[in-house]
Structures are given as structure tokens and as C-alpha cells.
Simulated scan of single mutants.
Amino acid sequence: MAVIGVFSAKGGVGKTTLAVELAWRSAVGSGHRTLLWDLDAQGGCSYLLRLEEPTGSRAASAFYKTSNLRDLIVDTRFAGLSLLPSDQSLRNLVLTFSRIGSPYRLAQQTKFLAANYDRVIMDCPPGLNATSEQIIAAADLLLVPLSPTCLKAGTLDKIRSELIRHHRRHPPILPVLSMLDIRRRLHRETLAALEPRWPVVPMNSLVEQMAVRRAPLGSFASWSEPSRAMERLFNAIEVKIAELESRQ
């Protein structure tokens, strides 16, 4: 099993969109038994997958009792793709992890899921805090979407510094240039300066249609360039995972 964290230090960079799309491609395109774990209290994954928001506030309880995890998982309308939805109890997730004390609680829970899933993709809340430390300890790979503006602001450098400061051993980072609009000079300059070339997800109305249709991009516009960009990103992730597994 591989655990992929879709993580950003700030919101508004397409994090949830990427998490849902990649989970769909993992399950439907590659046949992996895939769990999308929504750790963001906003509940965007449920919305994009056209699922009702959970009633009650039980999501945080699973961090105290691991056996509760399987009771919270729901099937989606896509074969092989399950969702562990968020709810309002995750608004205090930082406090929850502080109370638990162990920095490896999330890592222990993902191992508990290994018998049932080939891929666990986590839609992570933004920010560098106790929750991000749990994610870093649990993930095999961190996917970090960055808009050209975030990149210019040094967001990736801040994340790398945080990893080095608090984690001697941390998962590899796969940065993604997201929301790229080549009509903008700053975006073109940012793209040209990248070496080596990162995966790129363009700003496009079809990507925005995911929120309107409440469906993964590949399920309604597989022919499009944004969908092909998502496929290239997914393939880059799979190559990275294969490299990591070959070292074990």
C-alpha cells in the first residue's frame, strides 16, 4: 500500500480537486483499491463526489479508536473508490492530535488500512502544524500543488525548511505547478524557470466544471488537455511510488 498526501501550506491552490481526480484515476483507471481520506473540515471531497455530508461529528473519533475507521468509510459511485469523509469535528484536528500525544497516530491508522487498500490518498488541511506533522509521518509521498504566485512567495522553500527542521527522514516531495495560465507573464516566466520540469495542471474552465458537475474531470472530459495533464501527473506519481517500492 502507498499513502499519498496532497498537501499545501495555504489554501486556494486546487488541493481538493487534485486529490479527488487522482483518487478517481487510481481506482477507475489503474484498478487500485483506493481510499480517499478527507482530512479537511470543509468536506470538499464529499461534495465533488456527489455524496451527502455525514450527519453528526464522528470523523475525529477515529483518531482515538482505530477500529472506528472502517465504520466511517463509504462507497462512492465509482468502482474501487471509497471515501473516508470529513465533518465539522475535524475543525479541531490540531487539538485532537495534541491531546493524543503520539506524532505517529495517523501513520498507525494508515497501516491498519493496508489489508483493504492499495492506495490511500489524503486531502490534507492547509497549514504547518501538528496535523501536518502527522501527515508527514504517515505519507510515502507528498504531492504539493503550488500556484505560480505561491512559488514566487517561497512557499515550497518554507515547506522544505519545515520538513528538515522537524523530520530527519521525511517522504519525498513531488511539487506540481497548479492553476497555470500561460496568458499571464508571471506564469510563463515561472514555467520557463522550472528545472527540472514539474508536472503542470492548467487553469481551465473544464477543471472548474468539476465543482458544477460534481464529478472527476476524467469522467466527463477525458479527451481534454486538462485531463491529459492530470493523467501525466498521475503517471508521475505511480513512477515515484514504484521507485520507492524498489528501494524497500
Score class of each variant (00 low, 15 high):
S132F: 01
A130C: 00
S8N: 13
L233D: 02
S205W: 06
W37C: 06
E231C: 05
G218V: 05
S61L: 15
P196D: 02
S132Q: 07
L48Y: 11
L95Y: 10
I237P: 02
R232W: 00
T96M: 10
A242I: 01
A27S: 12
D118T: 06
S98L: 14
F78T: 07
L83N: 04
A9Y: 09
S178T: 13
R168D: 12
L72E: 13
R188F: 06
R213K: 15
R99S: 07
L35A: 03
E231V: 10
R50L: 08
E195R: 14
G218E: 08
L244F: 02
H32D: 13
M1P: 11
I237W: 01
C150R: 11
P171D: 12
V120M: 03
A221P: 06
R99N: 10
A62N: 05
G14W: 07
S161D: 11
L90S: 05
S219Y: 10
P202H: 05
A19Y: 04
F234E: 10
T96A: 09
S82A: 11
L69G: 05
S98R: 14
C45E: 04
P85T: 07
V212K: 07
V239E: 14
C150H: 08
G218Y: 02
S222Q: 13
F63S: 01
V144A: 09
K158I: 13
I159Q: 00
A41C: 13
L191F: 11
R91N: 13
W37G: 03
Q109F: 13
K158C: 12
R169E: 15
L142E: 06
N204T: 06
L151H: 13
V6S: 08
L93C: 08
C124E: 06
P103L: 10
A114R: 14
L180T: 07
L233M: 14
G56C: 07
A236S: 14
L84D: 07
D38K: 05
A27Y: 07
P202G: 03
A41Q: 13
T190G: 09
D71H: 14
P125Y: 07
A236F: 00
D38M: 01
Y47E: 08
S219E: 15
V13L: 02
V3T: 15
P145C: 12
V207R: 01
L39I: 04
C150W: 04
M122P: 08
E195M: 05
S26T: 08
S57G: 02
K111E: 15
R25S: 01
D181F: 01
I241W: 09
S227K: 01
R184A: 12
T66R: 12
R184F: 02
A229G: 05
L35V: 03
Q88T: 12
T66G: 02
G5F: 00
P126E: 04
V201L: 13
G11K: 08
N68M: 15
R168L: 13
R33G: 00
L22T: 02
L39Y: 02
A19K: 04
F234A: 12
A23V: 08
F97E: 02
F220D: 00
P85D: 11
